[in-house]
Design a protein around this nucleic acid. Sequence first.
DNA 1: TGATCTTTTGACAGCGTTGTCATGATCGTG
DNA 2: CACGATCATGACAACGCTGTCAAAAGATCA
Lengths: 337, 337
Amino acid sequence: MQRKTINDVAKAAGVAIKTVSRVLNNEPNVRDETRERVLAVVKELNYHPSQSARSLAGNRSYLIALVYENPSANYVVDVQHGAMARCREQRFQLFVHQCSGRGEELAREITGLVDQTRADGLVVTPPLSESAEVIEALDRRSLPFVRMAPNEIRHRTPYADMDDESAAREMTEYLIGLGHRSIGFIRGHPEHFASGQRLKGFRQALHKHHIPFDPSYVMQGLFVFESGLEAGRQLLALPKPPTAIFASNDDMAAGVLMAAHELGIEIPAQLSVAGFDDTYIARTVWPQLTTVHQPSYDLAYAATDLLLQMLNSRATPKPVRLGYHLVCRASTAAPGG
Amino acid sequence: MQRKTINDVAKAAGVAIKTVSRVLNNEPNVRDETRERVLAVVKELNYHPSQSARSLAGNRSYLIALVYENPSANYVVDVQHGAMARCREQRFQLFVHQCSGRGEELAREITGLVDQTRADGLVVTPPLSESAEVIEALDRRSLPFVRMAPNEIRHRTPYADMDDESAAREMTEYLIGLGHRSIGFIRGHPEHFASGQRLKGFRQALHKHHIPFDPSYVMQGLFVFESGLEAGRQLLALPKPPTAIFASNDDMAAGVLMAAHELGIEIPAQLSVAGFDDTYIARTVWPQLTTVHQPSYDLAYAATDLLLQMLNSRATPKPVRLGYHLVCRASTAAPGG
DNA sequence: TGATCTTTTGACAGCGTTGTCATGATCGTG
DNA sequence: CACGATCATGACAACGCTGTCAAAAGATCA
């Protein structure tokens, strides 16, 4: 059984191949009756257009690349699925690529990827979305791209993000509301813009409630488990350790949990721990983490949607900001419980 | 700057486009001198062949689809990266797809995917690799595919796997070696062939050491965290609970850990817990899990390699079996410690 | 040296779409 | 009712490669 082509469909429907092409691409100027007839034949023959021929003739690949570097598998998979879902709806394909380089090398890695795949556009996740080199390289090629998450680089391209600052503020206020006054904070990777935002929100909440900001309660982490473990150990080794620790993401919060367990510190009775992201890990550690739910899937879906809009209309759509919410689980309680 | 085509290269090198094509595809019958000249021009012009044109003319897509259903993000990402690595080496592209259907519907989902993407072949992961419907559908289309992990379906296609049975036996013997005599076991998803293999290994070890097999110590799980939590609760609620629990994967073992924590049972002093897979979760729970290291990345790499061999030579390569090893961490100890 | 075989190279026709442009059908208007 | 404007459709040439087959260049042998 030979694979069906547009010719088979055209013949069966009694129209020219161009008309079939019009119907398939939702182009105007096709009579409803004709459109339906063609669609019926397409279905009957189980016809699927050849991606290669489409790309070759149309001079576009119908391919979008999702680039990431993020080590958190749970986050990555959520993002992948969100982007894929949107692509599938538009008959685009998603190509995922984990980057490894840095700086100039990273920029070359990404342009090389685009050269090879001929991707029509990119969805760029943090921290790649914050690399000046990457943005510049993409710009030079005038490659359409969207960024996920906020960014300090001003750029005309749209992005999809959430309000990390206010989310961190809310979480901190929640801890304060429980009665905590000495709260430790673990910063995220310094190259992630979100790290600064989250710290900012944390400080705002302290300020609002007239709690002095103590720099010795702030540790530098790298968004990975081990860094949270290390930071947790240090915070808990302080002469007067905090009664609560807010880590900038769940992986690091899990590290803090482990540090506490090592020391026989009971959670949440003796120490409250909060995370950020609400990934899978938040539910698999003990006790389950209080955290901020970040809508990774939806952010990726929205970002991909923005990119597709750009590709289809050459216009620049408005950025999208999505909501978050606190998820209160078992790792937080009033101090000295 | 217009994109370079094969014509530009041919002109610059003073040869016919067909010769350039030969060089790029490593075809024989090109003089070394000519080959090098072409290669030099390719590099100089930074020429990358158009995937679409290649596919269209050559009637193959240079695209491999990786299909999975597995909910464990950590496993999935490892597998993705392994498959990608091999693809990249061969200038193939990897397209990842998470399946959602079941039975006949699943088979239709996959064939539809192939219809749309024109993938040259598939890497099929469990439990999809064990679905008779899927295998049959793929066969009917005579689509090249490889399976990851063992399988009870006899089929001429190759696969890459590890010896789950003997790994489970080793882990059980390790627990027995620590002094455990009443060991609970949590089965994996009934549709995964590996579940049966792991149970088999467990029973073999008991038998070898003359420990009677007690069915009430075996719980049915589904390879997900929640099922491990539930099974753990049940095992620990037994009148005479086991002193060790061997869960068929890490996610379920993490669930057991949580069940124990809920009950205030100390690990490993009062209960030993072992997992299987050695995914990220094994290192983020407390205490860190003793588990079997499954080489997911390498298995995916090997499976993809097998597929590429099939695609390039139309021959059927031999299956590949990779090694595993026990990773002893903090969740296991002698009983009644 | 010429005949024959092998290696190297090239000309050209597709592959299955979309873009361009021409043509015929239909519509609205004075 | 005639006439231009708009809509619907089709013919045909790309798009950038690979496959096929023929021609040219070398190699081998009597």
